[in-house]
Simulated assay, not measured.
Amino acid sequence: MSDAHTLLSLQETIEAIAASCDDGDVWDRYAWVYVNKGDALIRQRFYLSSAEDEEDLLVDENGESLPLFAAERDLHHYLEAATFADVLIVQKRQQPLSQLDDYAAALEHYHRQDAFRDLGDFHAGTGDAPALPGIARGLSTEFDLQLAECPAERVGDAARATASLLDIPIAEALARCRQLPLVLGERIDPQQCARIERAFAALSLSLRRTTYRALAWL
């Protein structure tokens, strides 16, 4: 079920969607974003439904089919969760340092116009997003990983792990492990980061991690 059936602020809703992007499962975790009406978007309350929530619906007096939790609180469909995420991603790519007001404006524009807001420099979120220190390019957290230190007696183990993870010859991996620091990943996603860290943790070797935040305020 979604967030134990709670109402969220806009900031909490955006953070929940971003956290799902970290796992790559926003499209599986959430189905719809519901909202109350009659106030500026930034002050409204939101509900993220799951696919399970959408199985047992009530039809209100206006013919709108709603999950029980949404119907009881007079909420209404706002955007599909995947579309909500896409709006955030496009806004983030155009303005990597977007704040809550910027995301609210992008969502309101899409809800009214059924189109992404075009700020002129980065239409529809296509192309390469600018890379800023400490900020991820998309809506998923990104990481750099380095092997900064390795005892001489563990170089062979580190080289074998490096060869497997980077799909390079063992001789090349050995040479890299002798010339530290060794870059094992740049701007990689959370799943890749976890996989690489597990491989080196099994060898009792720690890695240096640099984190790039998905949202500027995190």
Rank of each mutant, 00 (worst) to 15 (best):
D53V: 04
D74T: 03
E108Q: 07
A104I: 07
E55G: 01
D56K: 02
G38K: 04
Q44H: 08
K37S: 10
Q95W: 06
D23Y: 08
L100S: 07
G24R: 10
W32L: 07
H77R: 10
R73M: 00
Q95C: 08
A40S: 06
C21D: 11
L58Q: 12
L75Y: 03
A51G: 13
A104H: 08
Q99M: 04
V35M: 14
I89M: 14
S49E: 13
R43C: 03
D86I: 01
T83A: 13
Y78E: 09
R29E: 15
W27Q: 14
L41S: 01
A19L: 00
S20C: 09
D28C: 11
D86L: 04
D60I: 05
S65T: 01
F84H: 05
G24M: 10
C21W: 08
A106E: 06
Y30G: 13
E61H: 15
L58C: 04
G24S: 09
E80R: 11
D74W: 03
Y47S: 15
A81M: 10
A19I: 00
Q91K: 15
E55S: 03
S49M: 10
P67R: 06
Y78W: 11
F46E: 13
Y78S: 05
D74C: 03
Y78K: 04
Y103G: 01
P67V: 05
D25M: 11
E72L: 09
R43T: 09
H77Q: 02
A82H: 03
W27P: 00
D56V: 04
K92E: 12
K92M: 13
D74K: 05
D25Y: 12
E80M: 09
P96F: 04
R45Y: 11
A81P: 05
D53I: 01
D28Q: 14
K37R: 11
L79N: 07
G24T: 08
E108T: 06
S65W: 07
Y34A: 02
D23P: 00
R93W: 13
E55N: 01
D25W: 12
P96D: 04
A105L: 06
I42Y: 09
T83V: 14
Y34F: 13
R45K: 13
A40E: 10
Q44E: 08
C21Y: 12
A19Y: 00
Y34P: 02
N62C: 05
